[in-house]
Amino acid sequence: MGEAASLLILLIAITFVVLIVKGLVIVPQKHAMVIERLGRYHRTIEAGLNLIIPVVDRHRPITIVRYENEQKLIRTEKRIDLREVVLDFPKQQVITKDNVGVQIDGVLYYQIMDAQSAIYGAENLVLAIQTLAQTSLRSEIGRMELDQIFESRQQINDRLQATMDEAGNKWGVKVNRVEIRDIDVPDDIRSAMNKQMAAERARRAHVREAEGYKQAEILKAEGDKEAEIQRAEGEKQAISLRAEGEKKAINLVLQAAEQTGASIDPKDVMRYLIAQGYIEALPNVAKQGDRVFLPLESTSLMGSIATIRELFSTSKA
């Protein structure tokens, strides 16, 4: 009887140890595991060493879809990866608003934030994310013309991310980025686009050339205007200085006449100064030919010189 009791206790101990060993679950860092008890959700265990009750508790696996060389691979995993995952789904045919068939290659970055929602929110989480991304992409592309797709790629990415975030909330998933990686168009459309781009470059070159010519002409006109202003300003100053000099000369002559007691008309003084200018210019005029023709008015100016000299001589006498 004692041996039977000892054997029973030993069996119970061994069973207990086995249950403990089988109930120990190690979860890696940045992973989680959903535990069901008797078919119902019980708890989510985090990274580290955890203890569950064998037979009563069991893990709920998650279905994962992967693509390798454009081949779909479906497998189940009992540990849920909480790291950011890259979903590179294959190309799909999309029709644009202007009825051009293009192939769009996209990539999606998502991260499971709530393991429980990821398990129970969708039968196949990754397939649901991929399908929603593809249908949303077809919807966005179908509302745009081909040229708009290339110009608005970032806007398409932003709208796709907003759509994926709205659906991802109930799946416990955060969609970090959705990007269009490649847009493949038919050869005839590509050739037409290349010709269009070449024409656009030529047009821009002509516009730049015209703008450059316009700027050059504007600068030239402004330079000519500035030169005319400077020239006019110089002539103005020259005339002012010349007038000032003539004024001083007249005043000197009048002052000399007052000192000698002579009475001189200022007009005669002006004629006298002008006549002096004629006399100074005569040698240069004579160099231009054998004959020199002087204006008729020069004789009266010469007379002014004689008049001034006569007045000064009379005053001195």
Rank of each mutant, 00 (worst) to 15 (best):
E84I: 11
S6I: 13
K225A: 09
N284Y: 08
L132I: 07
S315M: 05
A317C: 01
F16M: 10
A232Y: 05
R58A: 06
I239S: 09
Q130K: 11
A47V: 08
E246F: 15
K236Q: 09
H42W: 10
E151R: 07
P266G: 07
I308Y: 09
A317T: 13
G23P: 01
T131Y: 06
E246H: 12
N284L: 07
L146G: 03
Q288G: 02
I183C: 01
R40P: 00
E145C: 01
E84R: 15
D105F: 12
Q215D: 10
I52M: 11
R60P: 00
E280M: 07
G48N: 12
V21P: 00
R159E: 03
V253L: 06
K287F: 00
S300M: 05
T299M: 05
A122W: 01
L11P: 04
R231E: 08
N124I: 08
H42P: 01
I20Q: 00
P90D: 06
V292E: 00
L51N: 03
E77I: 03
K30E: 15
R190Y: 09
D98M: 07
E222C: 10
S6H: 08
R83S: 14
A317D: 03
N50T: 03
V185A: 09
W171T: 08
V100H: 05
L125W: 07
R291I: 04
F312W: 04
L294D: 00
S152A: 11
L132F: 10
D187T: 15
K267Q: 11
R203K: 13
Y278L: 08
G48Y: 13
Q148T: 06
A133E: 04
D290M: 02
R181N: 05
G261T: 02
A5P: 02
E258C: 09
L51E: 04
V292K: 02
K267T: 10
I129W: 01
D188V: 15
A128P: 03
H206Q: 15
N284E: 10
I149G: 00
P28V: 13
T314G: 00
S152F: 08
K287Q: 05
G121Q: 04
V65A: 04
I95K: 12
L108P: 01
M1R: 11
K220E: 13
L282M: 09
D184M: 09
A128C: 07
V18N: 03
G48I: 05
I52L: 12
L73A: 11
I189D: 03
L254F: 11
E209S: 14
D114P: 11
M144A: 04
D224V: 15
R190A: 12
E228L: 14
L51A: 10
A306P: 00
N251R: 15
D188N: 13
A275G: 03
